[in-house]
Every structure is written in C-alpha cells, then in structure tokens.
Design a protein around this nucleic acid. Structure first.
Lengths: 192, 192
DNA sequence: AACTCCATGTAACATGTTACATGATTCG
DNA sequence: CGAATCATGTAACATGTTACATGGAGTT
C-alpha cells in the first residue's frame, strides 16, 4: 500500500493531473518508485474516495479536459504519519543483473550489448537530472540553497538519482571492459 | 514473469532447496531481485511442472527432509533464451526516498534517524559482500580471477551490489549532515 | 491519410505480500 | 522451558502489468 504514499509525496510538490503524474513516474523524477499510468489512475480514484486528494476539472480550449489533483488536509496528515513510520528496506528488480548472473553459460556478446544499452540510458537520465538540478539551484550554490529553500527533500532525492546513474555508468563500463577482454583472450565459451 | 528467471539464474550456480534460495533472496546475494519465501515455493512448483527444474528429496538425519532443485536441460535453455532478450529497465521501490521527498513538510528528525538506519544496513550488507568477495577471489587478484574463473557473472553482480551499498553509505551521510545543519540554523519547521 | 500527443479510463490477468499452520531440533 | 533454526506449505488479499478503447488536435 505504498504507491499511494508516493502519490501523496508527489502531490506535496504541487497539484497535478493523472497524465502529468504518469510522466513523472514513467520517465524521470521519481526514479525511486516506478508505476504504470493505469496504476496511477486507479490509485488516484481510491485516494479521492478516501478523501486524501481532491480533484478539480480544468477545462482546456483545444485539449481534452483534465482532472487536477491536490492534497487535502487529511492527505497531508496521512503523508506526515507515513514519514514517521520506519521505512521498508528498498526492493529492486533488475533483469539485466539476472542475465549477467548467468553470463558464464551464454554468449557474453549479448551481455556486452545490454551493458552498453544500460550505460546509454543512464547517461540520458543523468543529463535530465542535471538540468533539473540547475533549475532548482537557480544560480545559487548548494550551501545557499540549503539555507533558503523549502525544497530540500526533492533536492536530496534528486541527488540520490544522480549518484545512482553515475554509478550505473561506471559499473556498466567495467562490465563492458571485463567481458570484452575475456572475449579476446579466451575464444568464447561456445556450447557447453 | 521474471522471478522465474531469477530462480533459474540462481540455480545455474548450483542446486539448492527452497529454504536455501529463500535465504539467498531475502538476505543477500540477490541484491537485485527481492522475493519472499512464499513466492519462491510457489514459483518453484510451477517451474517443476513446466519441466524447467527437477526436485530430488534429500533425507536428513536430524533435520526435516528437503527438496533440492536443479536446472534441467530445458531450464538451461530457457535461461539462455532469456539472456538474449532485451532486459526491461530496472524498477526500484524505495520507501525512504518517498519519505525524504516530503521532508519539507514534516519533522526532519525522523528522516535523519531513517537515514542513519539506512546507512547502518548498508554497512552490514557491504561487509557481507566483502566476505563473499574474498571467498570468490580465493587469494587471487582480480585480473587472474577474470582469466581463470567461470564465475565472472556472479562476481560482476556482486560488484554491483558493493558499489550500490557504498553509494548508500555516502549518500546517507550527506542526508544526515544536510538535515542536521539545517536543523541547527533554522529553528525547525514546526507546524505549517 | 497516417501518426503522435493529450487525457482518461475498463477489464483481465499475473505477481507479490501477509497471516497462519506444522513439527522436529538445537541453543541458552 | 522458551526461542531460534530448519523446512515446507495453504489461503486470502493487495498490487502491478498488459491489452484494449475512445476521441479531438496538431504534425508530416
């Protein structure tokens, strides 16, 4: 029961429609909680029924109307209560690591390609995060920012995302180099 | 449908019982794929029905008997096919990051504590990984190891786990310092 | 004319989590 | 004697994923 909380946390940064939240969750900011659009729509419904968020229809001229959600007092209270409870340990699901675990019984070429894909993805994510960071800092240094801003939370989670992608880049590079070097010296493990 | 593949990958390192796999998944090695014991038992059943693994009952003297699972030829083939398919992007679920995202509207004290817990956990995981690493290297240097071993896959995933926990330690430290410094200068954001 | 973007949803299905049950053995 | 460890499971429930549906506006 925790996408609900992720949604509340996202809405604590300001109101948004389901579609906008879907983009945030699918693409970028929320590197730490993944969800598909369908989940969002479903859980927003439920949050509304539970009185945690309220929806307001915004009519648009040459676009479909949208329902913009914002936190209610109850929602804010629930979010506060959540932040005081101990957090569950993080859970990861990484198919590429599963594939790599079994690399010794396959063609390492596929793994090298997959690592390159991973690295490229990480670079793009990192670039996105860096832009966001510039916008948040708005010309100030980190120390100034910490003193002035009321957005320390989002900044710290953004830093987590940045560090994570930097790690991905470094690590993927190691994987590529290691497997490539092996492929050269040993003539590849063909068959069993 | 991918815990199945994680199980196949785990079994590619040698046969194991459900209970043993549960420990690997719950505690340590498989930092990159989390699962509860119940899931494992259920999916092992299914894998057996599908002919991907075969079970062998091992009678034990002063312990309950156990069913030890190993890959069948079909299972190994399925695993190979899986490693050749493009991997889905990784998915993370991290409650602490959700809490931190909303830190600006709560007491930062709870977040500092949570960060300290996270750091402690990361240290313990890292220590476990380091031990495992020593055992894998068995006195050899990395270069030697890469040249000799048929366990490059597990080693590389282990490295990913190590780097990830090192990141956690560094990042949690930043969070603690930042929030503590803020708590000193500003007299804490009480109420709204 | 075909395609992408905005915007929201339903329904069916697959996975993951929690609570509970069992029963012997070893450790303090 | 109570707790932890080994070892496996069932059942109920909560979440997450996939496929499909709709429909106007702008873009190539």
């Amino acid at each position: 029961m925790s996408l609900r909380h992720a949604l509340l946390a996202a809405l604590s940064q300001g109101e948004a429609s389901g579609y906008e939240l879907a983009k945030r969750f699918d693409v970028g900011v929320a590197e730490f909680w993944s969800a598909t659009p369908q989940q969002l729509y479903r859980d927003l419904e439920r949050l509304e029924q539970d009185g945690m968020v309220s929806a307001r229809v915004v009519e648009q001229s040459r676009r479909p109307n949208k329902r913009v959600f914002s936190l209610t007092a109850a929602g804010r209270e629930e979010l506060r209560a959540f932040t005081r409870r101990p957090a569950k340990p993080p859970a990861m699901r990484d198919e590429f690591l599963v594939q790599l675990q079994a690399v010794d019984l396959t063609d390492p070429g596929a793994a090298v390609e997959a690592a390159a894909t991973r690295r490229e993805r990480a670079r793009q994510k990192l670039a996105g995060y860096d832009q966001l960071r510039e916008r948040m800092l708005a010309g100030r240094g980190e120390t100034e920012f910490y003193a002035e801003s009321s957005q320390v939370g989002p900044y710290l989670t953004l830093m987590a995302g940045r560090m994570y992608e930097q790690l991905n880049i470094r690590w993927a590079t190691t994987v590529i180099e290691t497997l490539t070097r092996r492929g050269e010296s040993a003539p590849a493990a063909d068959g069993e």
